[in-house]
Each structure stands twice: as structure tokens, then as C-alpha cells.
């Protein structure tokens, strides 16, 4: 597991699924449909991503799919880093 994914999983588990071992959280587990991350949770994830990865979160690009799974969040972080790098 790469470092970014590891960090995202650790955050999600600590904040939203404290009873679940990190290794049990699949990259593709649907965090939204299962109600794991609710509306306040989404805001928390956004604020954490900004702080942890020092990325600006452009909300014009945001939709629920950006945060549906750990894999989607990781893809979002990668893209934000790429954009920041290109600027």
C-alpha cells in the first residue's frame, strides 16, 4: 500500500470507523452509501486533505464521487498535487 493510501485509510478509520482495523478497509468500499461519511464528515475530509497534503481543494471540481472511496480520495489527492506542481 502506498503512503498516501495508508494515511487516508488511517484517517478514515480513526475518524469514522473506530472499530474497524485499517487493513479491513478496502480501497473500493463505498463510504457514502454506507453512511460512514455524512455531510459533516465530507467537510472534515476536505479540511484534513488540505492540511495533511498541503493541497488547495478546488470545490468547482468536487462531487460526491471524489470522496466515495479511499481509491477516489487518493486519485483526488494525486490530481491536486499534479495541478499544484504544474502551476
Amino acid at each position: 500500500m502506498d503512503e498516501t493510501t495508508q494515511k487516508i485509510k488511517a484517517f478514515i478509520v480513526e475518524e469514522f470507523m473506530p472499530d474497524v482495523p485499517v487493513e479491513d478497509l478496502d480501497d473500493d468500499f463505498d463510504l457514502l452509501t454506507g453512511g460512514v461519511v455524512d455531510s459533516l464528515g465530507l467537510l472534515k475530509v476536505v479540511a484534513w486533505l488540505e492540511d495533511e497534503f498541503d493541497i488547495g481543494v478546488d470545490d468547482s471540481e468536487l462531487g460526491p464521487d471524489s470522496f466515495r472511496t479511499v481509491a477516489a480520495i487518493k486519485a483526488y489527492v494525486d490530481q491536486a498535487r499534479e495541478t499544484a506542481h504544474a502551476e
Binding site: L42, L43, L62, D65
Partner: peptide, 13 residues
């Protein structure tokens, strides 16, 4: 406005 399902983020903004 925005994508389907993006209303919550739009509203936040």
C-alpha cells in the same frame, strides 16, 4: 449547476 450530486459542495461555497 456543477455535476449531479455536487449540490452539497455548491451549497457550502
Amino acid at each position: 449547476l456543477g455535476k449531479p450530486g455536487a449540490g452539497f459542495f455548491i451549497l457550502e461555497h
